[in-house]
């Protein structure tokens, strides 16, 4: 039963959707404050490599080392995001160009692979990795076993993050301010909200989430370091935020959908069905391109519920 196509694909959706979910939550926070961050892929890769480095080098019990690895990955992602924030908030550079430059700089065959080589991280598996937390008997329950109980702590933590981000944005004063900054920075500024500080903070936290998403690859899914480990997940995460209409809960569904979709062709092959591999491998990216095209047009953006000031630098004197 649990080896049936549907269950395998759904359980894979949760597993492979988790890094997408983390990265998308981060991107959502940044975008809700008006900062479009196309550097997610680069931030994920730097997070993946640095988180892996911490786990390989730090002594101590498994749980602590893994926690430290996630912490380092988050810091590394935030550090990359700080570059983006400085360029687009302080210097008011074009957000699209800065984000793209960061992904090229940090991505595969860039900073992340340099770090991987220089810190000698290839050639051995992760010393510790996130493993299933529930006992085998629960994992073997039909259908919900593999989907709900067959997952690692990273998955459950991501559910908590979804709830926290959703509550933060809709139920707290600061969350309201974030949305104000993203919708109308001038009005927020007049209210006494520090636009630059909000944008910095949310871009950095967004980068930290992307770093954790990267570490989900290097510490859980394929617990080792290899060049370009994330395989374009950062781009899918950006598209995901758009498809989720900037809502955290929809991000979760979308992430699992994309995750399941990437696992589907392999599960189908396992059942003797061959579909043109090009089709399956390109579809997530085709969807990404469509989403990016949509978001690049202002009219379409507003229709989908995008923050009105997304991608626009804020200059107080220009009101």
């Amino acid at each position: 039963m649990n080896n049936s196509l549907v269950v395998v694909v759904l359980a894979s959706g949760v597993l492979y959707g988790t890094p997408l979910l983390y990265a998308a939550l981060g991107e959502l926070l940044a975008e809700r404050s008006g900062v479009l961050n196309l550097g997610v892929e680069g931030m994920m890769l730097v997070g993946a490599v640095m988180g892996f480095w911490a786990v390989q080098r730090l002594p101590g019990p498994s749980a602590l080392v893994l926690a430290a690895g996630i912490g380092v990955a988050a810091l590394a992602g935030a550090a990359m995001a700080a570059i983006h924030a400085f360029l687009v908030v302080t210097l008011r550079a074009n957000q699209i160009v800065s984000g793209l430059a960061l992904t090229i700089f940090a991505g595969a065959a860039g900073l992340s692979s340099y770090l991987g080589n220089d810190l000698k991280l290839t050639g051995s598996p992760a010393r510790h990795q996130f493993q299933e937390v529930f006992p085998k008997s629960l994992q073997d329950l039909p259908v919900i076993g593999p989907m709900v109980f067959g997952q690692s702590l990273l998955v459950y933590a991501s559910w908590v993050c979804v709830i926290l981000v959703a509550l933060y944005l809709t139920r707290t004063r600061t969350g309201l301010n974030v949305r104000a900054v993203g919708e109308s920075p001038a009005a927020a500024d007049a209210m006494g909200v520090n636009v630059a500080a909000y944008r910095y903070a949310h871009t950095l936290v967004g980068g930290a989430f992307a770093g954790v998403g990267g570490a989900a690859f290097s510490l859980s899914i394929t617990p080792q370091w290899a060049d370009g480990l994330t395989g374009g997940a950062g781009w899918i995460a950006i598209a995901l935020v758009i498809f989720a209409f900037w809502r955290p809960t929809l991000c979760l569904l979308g992430a699992y959908f994309f995750g399941a979709f990437t696992a589907l062709p392999f599960a189908l092959q396992g059942h003797g069905v061959t579909v043109a591999p090009e089709l399956f491998q390109t579809l997530p990216y085709v969807a990404t391109i469509v989403a990016l095209v949509l978001v690049s047009s202002r009219a379409a953006r507003l229709r989908f519920g995008a923050p009105a000031a997304l991608g626009l630098p804020y200059v107080r004197e220009e009101r």
């Binding site: 395998v8 894979s12 394929t222 990437t262 696992a263 092959q269 396992g270």
Partner: peptide, 21 residues
């Protein structure tokens, strides 16, 4: 199970998973 890539860790893992399933 074909991955259509010489080296892609994610695809290789998904293929392995599907084979065991």
């Amino acid at each position: 199970i074909w991955t259509n890539a010489w080296l892609d860790l994610g695809k290789e893992k998904k293929a392995a998973q599907s084979l065991v399933a």
